[in-house]
Amino acid sequence: MAKVLVGITGNEKHIPGQTGMTYVTVASELAQGVSDAGGLPIVIPMGEVSQARDYVTMIDKLILSGGQHVDPRFYGEEKSIESDDYLLARDEFELALIREALKQNKPIFAVCRGMQLLNVALGGSLHQAIEDHWQDGYAGTSHSLRIKPHSRVGQLFDQGSQINSFHRQSIKDLAPGLVATAHDPRDGTIEAFESRKGASLLGIQWHPEFLWQECERSRQLFRYLVEQL
């Protein structure tokens, strides 16, 4: 039986010590989580918008990975913060991947920035600056979840499950076709959403790839992605 091909969007970064060289990057734990769940991870490098159709055609499911802020032009706002943590070419390419995945009815699993971008692609908006959502160190967790019963997240995580937090922006207006299924009980930040009907969409604000080795619920999330989403 052929393995499920899961495309993971890659970022581009300059590596210190390798002056002038740009690398395609993705957290290895994200690919490992897919592989451990029985899927075959395929990293999709940033490319031309015209390539989106071919990339989506070759995969079974799409993961939108974390990274930079989403350019506010895509939700009708001017930039209101002092930051250079943007990559317009990535936004444009991944928005094309989203459009094509929706057209081809391919499931989308969106993590952190990916969740924010998917919300924007579907007509939502973002808070450009939030506080107290970036924990110290990549190990461990920082807060709990308030989960909507009978949701996809509710099938995978317990009420009060602990998650990590590495984001400086968050969802402001949720896109019309989505429903929020988990919140941060401290301030109401949307931590998960899914599609109301139709397309198989699941977005989470935290990073399960940094937890899956020690957390059975996170491993279950990756199995759900590969086997059911």
Rank of each mutant, 00 (worst) to 15 (best):
K148L: 14
G154Q: 04
W206D: 04
P208W: 13
E82I: 10
V153F: 11
I44N: 00
K13R: 15
V24W: 00
A182N: 05
T181I: 07
P149T: 01
A121L: 04
V56Y: 04
P16C: 01
F222Q: 08
I8H: 03
R113Y: 05
W134Q: 14
D184Y: 13
Y55M: 06
T57L: 07
F210Q: 08
L97W: 09
E214R: 15
E82C: 03
E227A: 13
L122S: 13
E209K: 10
F93E: 01
P208L: 09
H14Q: 14
Q228N: 08
G33S: 06
L5F: 11
E48H: 02
A2G: 03
V43C: 10
L202G: 08
I130S: 02
P107K: 02
G20S: 09
G39H: 10
G137T: 08
P16Y: 10
I108M: 09
G47M: 03
P149C: 01
I204L: 14
E29W: 02
I81A: 10
E214C: 02
S50W: 01
I147W: 13
G10R: 04
I163E: 13
F109S: 04
S80A: 15
S195I: 01
I98M: 01
E29T: 07
L145K: 08
V4A: 09
N105E: 15
E131L: 12
S125P: 06
M1H: 12
Q32E: 15
R113A: 11
S144M: 03
S165L: 05
L40T: 03
L64F: 06
I130T: 02
Q18L: 11
A175W: 03
